[in-house]
């Protein structure tokens, strides 16, 4: 799994430091709801039934970094460079936090 290989090689900024808006968010389910946008292709809660990378249980760091690299055109993509541009850094971090906490099958 490519994402896993990229793993925890970088410095992870804590979510609470980098995202003041999140800590004040009225909606505690925002990460869950945003991550549900991934499920259509990558499976419910990121548990892929096949043919797409599974996202559940990947490290937060690698998930967030992959999305940001897609967005910045630093990672080859067919579609993810276009979809990732729909989300802010804060939203990507919320999605990564939610999916990393899901149990991989």
């Amino acid at each position: 799994m490519k994402l896993r290989k990229l793993g925890l090689t970088g410095l992870w900024l804590s979510l609470t430091c980098s995202m003041p808006a999140w800590s004040q968010a009225v909606d505690p389910n925002l990460g869950r709801n945003l991550a549900a946008n991934c499920a259509n292709c990558h499976g419910t809660n990121g548990v892929s039934v096949g043919g797409m990378p599974a996202l559940a249980g990947q490290s937060r760091d690698s998930l967030a970094r992959a999305m940001k690299e897609f967005r910045e055109g630093k990672r080859p993509a067919t579609i993810m460079h276009q979809l990732s541009k729909g989300y802010s850094d804060e939203q990507i971090d919320l999605i990564a936090a939610y999916l990393s906490a899901q149990k991989a099958r």
Binding site: C41, T44, V49, G51, T78, I79, Q82
Partner: peptide
Amino acid sequence: AVAGSGGVSAQRNELEGSYASAWAQNIWSD
């Protein structure tokens, strides 16, 4: 639509053919 997001394939290709099949399996399961 979020400004700057979205788009279409650069050209037709078989890699996305395999993704399309996988999309179907995953969304039916979802």
